[in-house]
């Protein structure tokens, strides 16, 4: 690859590709322009936004960080942010603890209903949430568990287990059985072999799965809206929608765009560092995260 970049530029070839470059650059420039404008607007006063003068405002160095302060403090973004962080982290850990052992034994042993369970996980990945929320909600309200953090975490874990099991199975299948045989000779029990030897071997896959699970839980909206709708416990997606709806009435566009940026940043930063891993994960798994 590096050899190619040192080659002289073949202008004839590049000219042939020009229409393609124009389309790509136009699309990406549009995306970048929108993001930069939103950032600029989040640092501007609402009056300047209304007059369409965010660029003049930002280039004059007049940054209004109070938009962020007001979004973070008085509009509860800090609460939503902390909630989502809790849900994402506990959800990711819980998902791995449940999925990895299951993926391992399903890919290693034949047992009763193995095929059926495997197929069920595949089907579960495309079951629409609307098919399951009504009974779950009635169950939750019967047990007085609506607006309960623990129940929401359990639900997001259940939501992520099918994808995680199927994704991890591919990786366990590719590991040589020689590891287990050697461990058995040394007197290591099968369970200990899994935790000490097999699990560390699929670490790259664990990271990819966790990144997908994190993105998915952070961006989860539908179930949070139904199961943790209260202001103190809800997640960033639902919180942001509440903010957006109330701010359009109050007319505080600066605060609105600041809230959008705060919700956008964590996944964006994650993507900046891990875009290759995420993209390879999408194409390898062929499964929407």
């Amino acid at each position: 690859m590096s050899k190619r970049t040192h080659e002289r530029i073949n202008w004839k070839k590049e000219a042939r590709l020009l229409p393609g470059y124009i389309l790509l650059v136009a699309w990406v420039a549009f995306t970048a322009f929108i993001l930069l404008w939103i950032i600029a607007a989040s640092l501007s006063e609402t009056n300047d936004i209304m007059r369409g003068e965010v660029w003049q405002n930002v280039f004059s160095g007049d940054f209004h960080f109070e938009n962020y302060v007001s979004a973070w403090m008085s509009n509860n973004v800090s609460v939503y942010f902390a909630n989502s962080l809790l849900y994402s982290i506990v959800g990711c850990v819980g998902t791995i603890l449940i999925s990895a052992p299951a993926a391992y034994v399903m890919s290693r042993f034949r047992f009763f209903l193995n095929k059926t369970i495997h197929l069920s996980f595949i089907v579960a990945m495309s079951v629409p949430a609307v098919m399951v929320i009504l009974p779950l909600f009635s169950l939750a309200s019967g047990l007085n568990l609506t607006n309960n953090r623990i129940l929401y975490i359990i639900l997001v874990i259940c939501l992520r287990v099918p994808f995680s099991v199927i994704y991890l199975m591919n990786f366990f299948q590719n590991l040589s059985r020689a590891y287990e045989e050697a461990a058995a000779i040394d007197g290591c029990t099968p369970m200990k072999t899994f935790w000490k030897i097999m699990l560390p071997l699929v670490q790259p896959a664990l990271i990819t799965v966790t990144v997908f699970n994190f993105l998915s839980i952070w961006n989860e909206y539908f179930i949070a809206m139904i199961f943790v709708s209260g202001d103190a416990k809800t997640a960033v997606g639902v919180g942001l929608m509440n903010i957006v709806n109330s701010m359009t009435y109050s007319g505080d566009y600066g605060g609105l765009f600041a809230a959008v940026i705060i919700v956008f940043l964590p996944t964006f930063i994650l993507y900046l560092f891990l875009s290759d891993k995420i993209i390879n994960g999408v194409t390898a798994g062929g499964v929407k995260g």
Binding site: I38, A41, Y221, G237, V260, S275
Partner: peptide, 22 residues
């Protein structure tokens, strides 16, 4: 490739807010 895929990792609420309000 990464730039075109970017909107997929962002919260749909944030994406929709950008489009609707800007």
């Amino acid at each position: 490739r990464a730039a075109i895929y970017l909107p997929n990792v962002i919260s749909a609420v944030a994406m929709a807010a950008m489009w609707r309000y800007y």
